[in-house]
Design a binder for these strands. Structure first.
Length: 108
DNA sequence: CCGTTGACCAGGC
DNA sequence: GGCCTGGCCAACG
């Protein structure tokens, strides 16, 4: 049941830590789990204080496209390319420009 | 209090 | 694949 967290930031980071290698979660799955809007999930990740420390690159859009990626307030084609590289390096399978459905955890 | 903005989602064309 | 619309919740000025 999607109960609202008191500290969505903390819960998002906790979820990131329990994603196994070679898997990703969607913004929607997190939003349903925490009872917040998917937009807010992205907003939280964009304000990630430690982009190198937390595997925020393991969050993708529901259609399998990688979505955005912000580092130090910068988001552009280069950072999204980094996101894809990190994903493939951790074992995530790509089908063209999208993440394979098999690599996506629809529920947490 | 109100309007705008977001690393989104689902549905339609 | 693209574009648009309505909805979502919180943050910000």
């Amino acid at each position: 049941m999607a109960k609202k967290s008191k500290d969505p930031y903390k819960d998002v980071y906790r979820i990131l830590r329990k994603i196994p290698n070679g898997k990703v979660v969607t913004y929607g799955a997190i939003s349903r789990k925490l009872g917040i809007s998917p937009r807010y999930v992205g907003f939280i990740l964009s304000r990630n204080d430690h982009p190198e420390k937390y595997p925020c690159f393991r969050v993708v859009r529901s259609d399998g496209s990688v979505g955005g990626y912000t580092i130090n307030g910068k988001s552009n084609s280069r950072t999204s390319a980094q996101k894809r590289m990190k994903l493939s390096r951790t074992g995530v399978i790509f089908e063209g420009s999208k993440v394979s459905r098999k690599s996506i955890l629809d529920d947490i």
